[in-house]
Design a protein around this nucleic acid. Structure first.
Lengths: 248, 248
DNA sequence: TAAGGGAACTTGTACAAACAAGCCAGCACA
DNA sequence: TGTGCTGGCTTGTTTGTACAAGTTCCCTTA
């Protein structure tokens, strides 16, 4: 059962994408929308709030709402999983486990993941045949066994873990910066040592807030761009001075 | 007049930051909070929704809400303005206009900014005495005059434009990737040519959705990290294959 | 002992109503 | 002509109520 406000939000989003409400134009008023969809004003407000959160619509008290853009946003799964992202966008992709092994957690890892032992995995992902992403992932001990079961050429770790133990990745925190390629980075990604890489470090947790993995993902420059929409009201993006958190 | 739900959200955030609700613990139920703050359940829900949007609290139907983290998020102004960000975090900072001049807009710029003529400005920003950020900003024609009025050493362009013509930056779209330093980048930032830079391209608009500026900001690697929190429900971050949008 | 079935609890959705606050166009006045 | 104010419109806030849906845990039963 999909909520009413979600269906209204979908309908409005489709209208915007279809050009019925061009960028820069005004959205119908809440009263109009309520009449059109035979819903209470509060329900319509919830629907519009979805679009505002997506950055598609701008809103401020007293003034009519405005269409800001028409880009569609991705699901969490698409952001989290390289495979789901690539598949949703129609790319050819692949993945290969390079090395994998258990070891004792460093103090920082123990604090982040809440376990003494970790499973350290290095994976290389390709897009359209080109090596694009190097993933250095550290898994908490309680998922290590399930990860070790995976085939070395497993395309989607996220999906495989959901199928095998019902694991759902629910929350993430991401740190994005630029680093130069080390010797191993350069060799595996096929770039020169010292060339720029886009680094995304992230920690992912379950619904319960239980940490699952800590990953250091490095993209070849030019292969991937992160996009964020924000506003004076909603600001998901934060700038931090370098390397203050999470150690090196 | 601050809204009630905002004051409740502030109180809850303070409690979390103060450790009254540790990371991983459960938040009080809506009913409890409503009783404590003498507010209707709907109002409490709005307050909690703020914290959920900030990524501090996780929420799902049927289960008690969970404290996910205690990082405080920045305002849009702090993200948008280097000066406001640096000041709020207690850093010594500076800025210097390097070159500035009007020229005809390229087709891409005309499409983005909606003007035929643009003002092109190159600025270098320093943090703790070190050159850290190179801003290549293109302003729409209708703000060009106000920007030209600014002093070359103007610390905060955002604040200066608000003071002079009441301009408010309200919405932004950001593209984040890594590039290697060109000759000019290297010289001004004091790094070697080809060394990694964190690039943030952004377009900023007014409340009305009117584009004001298009900027290409390059940070020296290691000086700045972007941080984003997301969840299966709220996902502000999007990954895109390289250089599909906004041209080069 | 383990699986299954609820009952109680908690969050999510929807409606209705009233007032507050900000925006904007049009009117009156200088 | 242009300035300032006012009134209508639109979005924001708050309360109250009812039901839906998911979670959790205990108790029953095999």
């Amino acid at each position: 059962m999909v909520a009413r406000y979600e269906r209204i939000a979908d309908a409005l989003r489709d209208d915007i994408l279809a050009g019925l409400h061009p960028v820069g134009s005004q959205l119908p008023t809440e009263a109009e929308l309520a009449a059109r969809y035979l819903a209470a004003r509060g329900t319509v407000r919830q629907a519009v709030a979805v679009l505002v959160a997506e950055g598609l619509v701008g809103s401020r008290q007293g003034a009519r709402r405005i269409v800001l853009g028409k880009a569609r946003s991705q699901s969490f799964a698409e952001l989290h999983s390289f495979a789901q992202w690539a598949r949703a966008n129609g790319y050819r992709f692949g993945g290969q486990m390079i090395t994998q092994g258990r070891r004792a957690a460093s103090p920082a890892e123990a604090a982040r993941l809440g376990t003494d032992e970790v499973l350290d995995v290095l994976r290389l992902r390709t897009l359209e045949g080109e090596p694009v992403l190097l993933e250095r992932t550290v898994y908490a001990e309680w998922v290590a066994a399930a990860v070790e079961e995976l085939a070395p050429g497993c395309e989607s770790v996220t999906e495989a873990l959901y199928d095998s133990i019902g694991l759902v990745f629910a929350y993430g925190e991401h740190l994005i910066d630029a680093v130069s390629a080390g010797a191993q980075d350069a060799r595996l990604l096929g770039v020169r040592r010292g060339s720029p890489l886009l680094r995304q470090r992230r920690i992912t947790t379950t619904h319960e807030g239980r940490p699952v993995e800590w990953s250091d993902d490095r993209y070849r420059a030019g292969s991937v761009v992160f996009s964020i929409r924000n506003s004076i009201d909603a600001n998901p993006l934060v700038r931090q001075a370098g390397d203050l958190r999470f150690g090196a």
